[in-house]
Amino acid sequence: MESFFRAIEDLFVNVLFIPLDALRFMHSWWGASTLNWIFMIIGAVAFVYWMLQLKKYNDSGEERKDVSGHSFL
C-alpha cells in the first residue's frame, strides 16, 4: 500500500506540477501570478453570470414567496 501512495506522490510532484514549478521561478510577480489571475477572472465571470440568471428568475415571478410557500413553514 505504501508503494501506491508513493506512486501518487510521484505523479503529482514530478509530473503534474511541472508547469507550476516553471511559474515559481519567474522573476516577475505578474508572470508568476498569471495562472491565479486567470482563475480569478473565470470566477468573476461565473459569479456575474450566476447573479444575472438569479435576477432573471426572480424577475419572472415564478417563485412563491408567501409564508405558506413551503410545507415546513
Rank of each mutant, 00 (worst) to 15 (best):
V45I: 14
A22M: 11
M1N: 00
I42S: 10
M51C: 10
D10C: 03
Q53T: 13
Y57V: 00
K56H: 10
Y57Q: 07
R24S: 02
D10Q: 02
A7M: 01
E9M: 05
S60Q: 10
K65R: 07
N14P: 15
D10I: 01
R64K: 09
A32K: 13
V15I: 07
E9P: 11
M1Q: 02
F4P: 14
L54I: 11
K56E: 12
V13W: 00
A22I: 13
N58M: 07
E2W: 02
L11M: 08
D10W: 04
I38P: 02
P19C: 02
V67A: 03
V13T: 09
L23S: 09
G61R: 10
N14W: 04
V48M: 02
F4A: 09
H70P: 09
D10H: 00
F47H: 13
F72C: 00
K56W: 09
I8P: 00
S28A: 05
L23E: 03
I8A: 09
I42H: 03
I38V: 03
S71E: 13
A7S: 15
I41D: 10
D21G: 11
F5R: 14
T34G: 08
L11W: 06
A22H: 12
E63D: 11
W29S: 14
F25Q: 10
S3R: 15
S33D: 03
V45F: 14
A46H: 10
Q53W: 00
I42K: 06
F17R: 09
N14C: 12
F4K: 13
H70R: 10
E2V: 09
F72Y: 08
K55D: 12
R24F: 00
V67G: 09
F12I: 06
V48P: 14
R6M: 05
L23K: 08
V48E: 11
E62V: 12
D66L: 02
N58V: 04
E62A: 06
S68K: 11
K56D: 15
I18V: 01
A46N: 12
I8D: 02
I38F: 04
I38E: 00
K65F: 05
F5L: 05
T34V: 07
F4V: 11
A46W: 08
I8R: 11
F72M: 04
S33G: 04
D66Y: 06
G69M: 02
K55G: 09
F4N: 06
A32N: 15
L52Y: 08
F12L: 06
G31M: 01
G31L: 14
S68F: 14
R24A: 01
L16Q: 12
D59F: 05
F47D: 07
G43W: 01
M1Y: 04
N14G: 15
V13M: 09
N58F: 04
S71R: 10
I42Q: 05
D10T: 02
Y49F: 01
E63A: 02
N14T: 06
N36M: 04
N58E: 10
V15H: 06
W37L: 07
M51I: 15
D59M: 06
P19Q: 02
W29P: 14
Q53M: 15
I18D: 01
F72L: 03
N14L: 04
G69E: 11
L35R: 05
A7T: 14
D59R: 04
S3V: 05
A46P: 11
F47T: 14
L52S: 14
